[in-house]
Design a protein around this nucleic acid. Structure first.
Length: 280
DNA sequence: ATTATTGTTGGTAG
DNA sequence: TCTACCAACAATAA
């Protein structure tokens, strides 16, 4: 599910659902997701706190709590939040809709909240349990070591060029997905941005001239805003807005050649062999 | 049955 | 200390 646009969408939901609310009760038994704390400690340290704000950097979320603590959340590959007492499941994996009595399938953490005497329930669901929830009084290393966030910080072309030069021999695709270079770019957004910028994903990061880097920065903004706009249409309107990702064998909408795929850094990468130029 | 999947992380080797 | 590579994590769909 989550790259930057999905996580930003999640942030906006969580802000509406939790900002200003007191965490009345927490239920979890999942030691993997809440590590390094034990579930018991995680629960007792969280209960009674109030959510001050919901921030995001790249694919990480931070629920700022009173008392200087923060709950740092990463959705892994398959995590999402759901308000358990309203709306149905948006994921076809789910058979049951969540409510207080019956946990949703793959529910991992349940938050009971209260705001101005109004109760609500928010659950974290994660079939594969690759997500994390780290409760910490200080910002954690995965959060502080992230590169600039393309949506909230923008992309500085000089800084990006320097970062590419430092990783000159690696493929541009792999470097784009390096969270220290730009925070929040994953396989989908990298694939889409490289198509938009007409850059072959196998090109060495150091081989892009300045004009190409400018194009690439623009393309990253384009795909993020586009995906986010699609998500904002809601669960109904949101569909598959991707041009290149997952389109192996289909015609490129720009030049008509068939998309092909290659593995880079262990991840499938789809690209148009005609209009995405290899720079080196 | 086999392979692939929107992502990190911890190990090892260099 | 840094990079590159890989298996692992877990559940599903094609």
């Amino acid at each position: 599910m989550p790259e930057l646009p999905e996580v930003e969408h999640t942030r906006r939901n969580l802000e509406r659902w939790t900002r200003g609310a007191r965490i009345v009760a927490v239920a979890t038994t999942d030691a993997r997701i809440v590590r390094p704390l034990r579930p018991r400690a995680f629960v007792s340290r969280l209960e009674g706190r109030t959510v001050r704000a919901v921030d995001r950097r790249g694919k990480w979320l931070r629920l700022a709590l009173d008392g200087a603590a923060g709950l740092f959340v990463h959705l892994g590959m398959t995590g999402w939040f759901e308000r358990a007492d309203v709306g149905g499941p948006r994921n076809p994996l789910l058979s049951a809709r969540g409510d207080r009595a019956s946990p949703m399938r793959f529910e991992r953490v349940r938050f009971e909240l209260e705001r101005r005497a109004r109760p609500s329930v928010v659950v974290y669901v994660d079939p594969r349990r690759w997500g994390r929830m780290v409760l910490s009084d200080a910002d954690i290393a995965p959060w502080t070591t992230l590169g600039p966030d393309p949506l909230s910080d923008g992309i500085d072309v000089d800084a990006l060029s320097a970062a590419l030069a430092r990783r000159a021999k690696r493929s541009i695709k792999e470097v784009l997905m390096d969270q220290r270079v730009l925070a929040g770019i994953g396989n989908i957004q990298a694939t889409e941005a490289l198509w938009k910028a007409r850059v072959d994903p196998r090109s060495r990061a150091g081989s892009l001239d300045r004009a190409r880097v400018v194009e690439l920065a623009r393309a990253v903004r384009w795909t993020i805003r586009r995906t986010l706009a699609d998500l904002a249409k809601g669960d109904r309107g949101a569909d598959d807005p991707f041009v290149a990702y997952g389109r192996d064998g289909e015609p490129c909408p720009r030049c008509g050649a068939r998309f092909t795929k290659v593995a880079l850094g262990g991840r499938t990468t789809t690209f148009c062999p005609r209009c995405q130029a290899r720079t080196a």
